[in-house]
């Protein structure tokens, strides 16, 4: 029998007193990695039904879909789980006129939502870069402790970590330790 395995299913950290911090497993989504020449962005945006921006770090959302620019010719695409197959079909039709590489990485990663006034504090425990230089509505690939993650900042206090599932327990453990320190005020 096929069994779903999600290392963080139902996990939740919630600090109530003093500081607000909620960390939980994010709703699963379909994920694609897209490599395409920047001059074909218009066609790709149309196929995905959401604009693909050319600035590294920029995100655009539309109808539950999110496109994040990771590099000069690389985008990460997120969409509701059920739409995975239809996205694949649409891009396949585009292939003849517009060569690209669309890879389904949906099963590779796990989403973790980090929310609340202490979100930056919790993330800073293992991310070395300067969060002040990360505006809302942007995302980036970076390193969380030793694990590569994609970090998306939805707004001031709402983040989403996307991490390979084999590193998910490790990242969760560190977030748990950081939350305990924040709860104790140390």
């Amino acid at each position: 029998m096929l069994q779903e395995r999600h290392p963080l299913k139902g996990h939740r950290i919630s600090l109530a007193e003093g500081v607000s911090l909620v960390i939980h497993d994010a709703e699963d989504s379909s994920r694609f990695n897209l490599r395409i020449a920047p001059e074909n962005l218009g066609a790709a945006s149309k196929a995905f039904g959401c604009e693909l921006l050319a600035t590294i770090g920029a995100t655009a959302t539309s109808g539950g879909r999110l496109a994040l620019c990771l590099g000069p010719d690389e985008w990460q695409l997120y969409a509701p789980l059920a739409e995975s197959r239809s996205i694949e079909t649409t891009f396949a039709a585009l292939y003849a006129s517009c060569p690209h590489s669309l890879v389904d990485v949906g099963h590779r990663e796990i989403g973790i939502a980090v929310e609340g006034a202490a979100a930056v504090l919790a993330l800073r425990s293992a991310c070395a870069f300067d969060f002040d230089t990360m505006p809302s509505g942007t995302g980036t690939r970076t390193i969380f402790d030793k694990a590569q993650i994609i970090l998306i900042r939805h707004d001031e206090n709402r983040f989403r970590i996307e991490v390979w599932r084999s590193f998910a327990d490790h990242v969760w453990g560190l977030l748990q330790a950081a939350s305990r320190e924040i709860a104790l005020g140390i």
């Binding site: 590294i56 770090g57 590099g71 000069p72 070395a128 870069f129 300067d130 230089t133 980036t140 970076t142 390193i143």
Partner: peptide, 10 residues
């Protein structure tokens, strides 16, 4: 390319 300063670990 990213036009931003990032930590060496990246």
């Amino acid at each position: 390319y990213c036009e931003t300063e990032r930590p060496e670990v990246e």
